[in-house]
Design a protein around this nucleic acid. Structure first.
Lengths: 215, 215
DNA sequence: TTTGTAAATTAGGATCGCCTAAATGAAGGG
DNA sequence: CCCTTCATTTAGGCGATCCTAATTTACAAA
């Protein structure tokens, strides 16, 4: 395993490769690599038994590949908790450095870090932290943008993307905070939110990446 | 910079490349790489201005190369403090994982880790932790093996090598602990030590890698 | 001064992970 | 059913880092 191959597996997982076939083009896009190079690597990874590769169709992770992807996610999220809770990192900074740290986090390290952090269930961005056996506690969520005007809920998760994280943190948006959609601008216009009495405007695009409780 | 090149610089530094020329053979040995490959890489690193390479003579670090080596050492030792103090690592485990972590520790991370740890001066094995400006507080030390029978001192540092660390930790040897050389076996025989009243025997070879105050 | 030996370099090759350009396959619209 | 389009694969290459084998250099002992 190299950090490189790990990134392939992780991104395929994030693209849904645990349940369905993922096309090469998508993988090439998120990894910023030429499609031809992706084909090559996928064949290699399938020979290693880490994914099922169906030419011209796509790839999905095997149990082994899934295990590696989840282990990476676990390391990533545990580090995020550490970086924000103890080192004073911001949302986006934590994500950035965790992206590096995840690749050099053997089970011994993630296990002890987990204990040190007192077994956190969620990362600072609201994603569930997989247990050491690979189990993930999923919570049913929907994007904020699906709420109707006047509806209330709680913010449970935000997508991990640098620009978005900086934007949302500057707005003072917080995980588990109460939110009410005051109004929705027409034509994918901005949403006006009520956060504990504070009025905040967020773009439609951002609202697609913010998740709240289902129902 | 790649982890690879970083390792070259770090090992050259540890072999004394900050003060004198280091031969290729030594570098090849510690990195477990063929001498021919070392020649190749040294030429590359010298083109990058990280070291002075004198064919058939050896190499020494430039200011830039030295800076990188010291930054690595700083990250390594800070992580060791964290791993032992907060995650319950042993001497050798801490060294092992710090070896990985050092390569993905940008200044932002080492700076905040340093603060979190309350600016420790020494790593758990007794080596000084370089400051962020590259400054290192050196303390004059000599190997324990140089002490005469009956002499007393304090253990200040041990070499970082897995086997040695496991050996010494199993003996209960501790940094800053008082030590008196009770007797010295002839012909590079073992030394009998008195550690706070406890009698402990260590091999000659180990005593070469344990450092105590000078004079 | 010659020469033996150990260290270092050169030559030639392999593998890995990436690239571009060209060819091929799949899938829906006419 | 054909054909366009777009995803994908194949072919051929490149640079990085390692290797082994053969050659050259440095240095010191005879």
């Amino acid at each position: 395993m190299t950090p490189n191959k790990e990134d392939y597996l992780k991104e395929i997982y994030k693209l849904g490769g645990a349940e369905k076939l993922v096309g090469n083009k998508q993988i090439a896009e998120v990894l910023k690599i030429a499609p031809a190079s992706v084909t090559e690597m996928l064949i290699k990874l399938s020979h290693e038994g880490l994914l099922h590769y169906e030419p011209y169709k796509g790839s999905c992770l095997t149990k082994e590949g899934l295990q590696i992807a989840i282990t990476l996610l676990r390391g990533h999220r545990l580090w995020e908790v550490f970086l924000m809770r103890h080192l004073g990192y911001s949302w986006s900074e934590a994500h950035e450095d965790a992206e590096l740290l995840e690749h050099i986090t053997p089970p011994r390290l993630s296990g002890r870090l987990d204990k040190f952090l007192n077994y956190p269930a969620y990362c600072p961005h609201g994603s569930a932290i997989p247990h050491s056996d690979g189990q993930i506690d999923r919570k049913p969520l929907r994007p904020l943008v699906q709420l109707a005007a006047g509806e209330s809920s709680h913010i449970r998760k935000v997508a991990e993307e640098k620009e978005l994280l900086d934007y949302l943190q500057s707005l003072g948006i917080e995980i588990d905070g109460a939110v009410t959609v005051a109004s929705i601008g027409p034509y994918e216009g901005p949403l006006m939110l009520d956060l504990d009495g504070r009025q905040v405007q967020v773009s439609h695009k951002a609202a697609c990446q913010i998740y709240v409780d289902e129902r």
